[in-house]
Computed example of a mutant assay.
Amino acid sequence: MTFGFPEPDLIIFDCDGVLVDSEVLSCRCLSDVLAQCGIELSEHDTLDLFLGRSTAAVLQHYDGRLVPEDFLAALKAQVFQQFRRSLRSIPGVSGVISQLTMPFCVASSSDLDRVRLSLALTDLARYFGDRLYTAQMVARGKPAPDLFLHAAAQMQADPQRTLVVEDSVSGVSAAKAAGMMVWGFVGGSHYRSRDGRSMLIDAGADRVFDQMANFWKGA
């Protein structure tokens, strides 16, 4: 049993904010690139609007009218530059992953090349191989359940026997919509001045924790 639930057959990790401490970096880049397009959006508001969402969600939010054609390319270039300079893994996550005995994978709203770069820069790629699933692979990104259901299907796992580890409201909502157990993680730097615990519990998280050292311990 795991905190009153059956031991999962599969664990799905979100990437940004769960495996790597990237949310502040990426939201800062998004805010900067939007400013270059004449759109003022603070880092705080960027987190509120787009935490856990795909770049397609950004375009949809602005309805494609206010951002130039090279917006995504400019954003990607800035994010990659910032990641190469400053990205770090979440403390303790390597130790957790290395000791898992059940299958596990990644399901992220980020593009596949960004996920691969993030895992390579933080020496986590060796754990996941090609078990990487992204919003590019499904019709609807988080908070829709499509991505998590796709990952479970590819891993040949029952959604009801799947545990998701997420840091965002949209990710928690997606996991619950997929019929999965979900643990909210609030140990990323983007939650230092935010009440992430209440946010994720309100979204439906079955448990919330703030240190990877407590992954299998009390909340």
Rank of each mutant, 00 (worst) to 15 (best):
M1D: 08
G4C: 01
G4T: 03
D9S: 11
D9Q: 06
I11R: 03
I12Y: 03
D16Y: 07
G17S: 12
G17N: 12
V18R: 09
D21S: 05
E23C: 13
V24K: 08
V24D: 09
L25P: 02
S26F: 03
C27I: 02
R28N: 03
C29P: 00
C29N: 02
C37Q: 09
E40G: 04
S42A: 05
E43N: 12
A56T: 07
L59Y: 07
L59W: 06
L59D: 09
Q60A: 15
Y62H: 07
Y62V: 02
G64P: 00
L66S: 13
V67R: 01
E69N: 09
D70F: 02
A74H: 11
A74W: 01
K76A: 07
Q82H: 05
L87I: 14
R88F: 00
R88L: 01
P91H: 13
G95F: 00
S98V: 07
Q99S: 15
L100R: 08
T101L: 05
M102T: 07
F104Q: 05
A107F: 01
S109K: 05
S110Y: 10
D113F: 11
D113Y: 09
L117E: 15
L121F: 06
F128C: 03
R131V: 01
L132N: 01
L132R: 00
A135E: 10
Q136W: 04
Q136V: 04
M137L: 06
V138M: 07
V138L: 05
V138K: 06
V138N: 08
K142W: 06
K142I: 03
A144T: 03
P145S: 11
P145F: 11
L147I: 14
A152P: 03
Q154L: 02
Q154G: 00
Q154V: 00
Q160K: 13
E166T: 11
D167E: 14
S168L: 09
V169N: 14
K176H: 10
A178M: 06
M180Q: 01
M181C: 13
G187P: 06
G188F: 07
H190I: 04
S198H: 11
M199S: 08
M199T: 00
L200P: 08
A205R: 09
D206E: 09
Q211A: 15
A213E: 14
F215W: 15
G218R: 14
